[in-house]
Nucleic acid binder design. Structure first.
Length: 456
DNA sequence: CTAGGGTTAG
């Protein structure tokens, strides 16, 4: 009896340590427990495994499976659900599937959560048909879906372009005996915004309030973000004040959203005040918060402070991401430090990050200092480009009246199926006209129309 | 074990 109670206590300790990412301490606690004769059980290992999946990754989590077998503890359905979730977190459908198969081979019966996770994994990998088949399997096996099943389904349908199906599922939830939760609203509101349906999303937001729910931090952060995107800065800020008045400032998500918008709209002092408030709240900075801070310093022109912060983040053991480096490269370009930007870009490449946005910033920076031909050379060396890449070059080619080159780029952009700013298109056509090249201008206009027909 | 929110370039 005493021992069972102790294992329970051990498990609570491990859970708390894993939640706060203190894996080493969790390991120590297990060893200390064994010394005292408290043996870890399946729950101990499952908890530890979840921790490793979250903090390190799937492989690290999977290695726990070996350890538990060696310790003579048999894995159960939760073990495999946890591994499936770990695989899903790093978007590995095949590993998720492997885990399901391994579970079946071990004659462990999958439960609702196994299917929820598998469905989620299919949706994430853009396989909506397979995902839906998992849902049907749940129903056919007479397992009662839970709220999360429907939430996952609604989110996945939206993500894969079936918004109207998701909306009607949402509307029918009551008839299946489920009340939409706040999380269900949040999912649909976010997805409606993401697909450009601003008005419907805002309507659903009102409906959420009318249904007697109080929006939570996630609802507010979502709504704010898309208000800001539409340049409704003050409207977004009103929501921020409203959420603050409700006490929802326990994490950095809202602050980063607000500061990002303030920086974009040039309200740098306000951004600074906001960040100061965030720090005052005592929240420990994570990578995104650092990025936002670094971005602020760059916009203030304080590159040295920005680099000092990068240093601090790295010393704290945080893994900087592609945003961190892109922000710095853009900062260097905007400060006119092309050599520095080039150096940082090489460093970023060496680290293996996706450099598309950083390269776009660099191209922009090169054009800004008149090195268009160098920018074109970079452009040609890129194997992935987007409309931003084209846009910078087209605008700058127009600026120096190289309209023929601009029109070539414009056409290849549209032919590659990318949307491009109307103002860019006009600039090229008008430019040719201005030079008296009426025929070329007319021809380009026709070619643009034809290319668009094929793609939009 | 689980579903929803944040940061980059025109």
């Amino acid at each position: 009896m005493f021992k069972r109670l102790s294992t329970k206590l051990l498990n609570i300790t491990i859970a708390s340590l894993c939640r706060t990412k203190q894996l080493e301490k969790a390991e120590t606690a297990i060893i200390d427990g064994i010394r005292l004769g408290i043996l870890p059980d399946v729950v101990t290992y499952n908890t530890l495994m979840t921790g490793y999946c979250r903090v390190v990754g799937f492989d690290a989590g999977y290695s726990i499976l070996q350890r538990m077998k060696e310790a003579g503890v048999n894995p159960d359905v939760v073990t495999y659900n946890s591994l499936m979730a770990g695989a899903n977190r790093q978007s590995s459908l095949f590993q998720c599937f492997d885990m399901l198969e391994e579970m079946l081979n071990m004659e462990i019966v999958p439960d609702l959560w196994s299917y929820n996770t598998l469905m989620h994994s299919f949706f994430r990998s853009r396989k909506p048909d397979e995902a839906y088949r998992v849902f049907q399997k749940i129903i056919l096996q007479n397992i009662s879906p839970c709220q999360a099943t429907y939430n996952t389904l609604i989110n996945g349908l939206c993500k894969n372009g079936y918004i109207s199906n998701a909306v009607s599922l949402f509307r029918n939830l009551r008839s299946y005996g489920y009340l939409p939760e706040i999380i269900t609203y949040n999912i649909l509101i976010n997805r409606l915004f993401k697909s450009g349906e601003f008005t419907s999303a805002m309507k659903l937001f009102d409906e959420l309030r009318d249904s007697g729910y109080v929006p939570n931090a996630i609802t507010y952060t979502t709504v704010m973000k898309y208000c800001f995107r539409r340049k409704y800065i003050n409207k977004g800020l009103e929501f921020f004040f409203e959420m603050k008045s409700r006490g929802y400032t326990y994490d950095a998500f809202a602050y980063c959203t607000v500061v990002g918008a303030l920086l974009k709209s040039g309200r740098i002092q306000d951004a600074n005040k906001c960040m100061t408030n965030m720090v005052k709240n005592g929240y420990e900075l994570d990578v995104v918060s650092y990025n936002t801070f670094i971005n602020m310093y760059c916009k203030e022109g304080k590159l040295e402070d920005a680099y000092q912060l990068l240093d601090k983040a790295e010393k704290r053991g945080l893994d900087c991401d592609k945003y961190t480096h892109t922000i710095l490269i853009d900062g260097l370009c905007k400060a006119g430090n092309i050599d520095g930007a080039k150096r940082h870009l090489n460093y970023m490449k060496m680290l293996g990050f996706d450099c598309l946005v950083a390269l776009n910033c660099f191209i922009n920076g090169l054009c800004e200092v008149g090195q268009i031909d160098y920018a074109l050379k970079i452009f040609q060396s890129m194997d992935v480009k987007d409309s931003f890449t084209y846009s910078s070059l087209i605008q700058n080619l127009c600026r120096v009246k190289r309209f023929h080159q601009a029109s070539k780029l414009l056409l290849s952009c549209i032919r590659a199926g990318m949307r491009i700013l109307r103002s860019d298109q006009r600039a090229v056509v008008n430019g040719l006209n201005l030079l008296g090249l009426k025929n070329d201008a007319a021809k380009l206009a026709v070619e643009i129309q034809t290319a668009k027909l094929l793609h939009y």
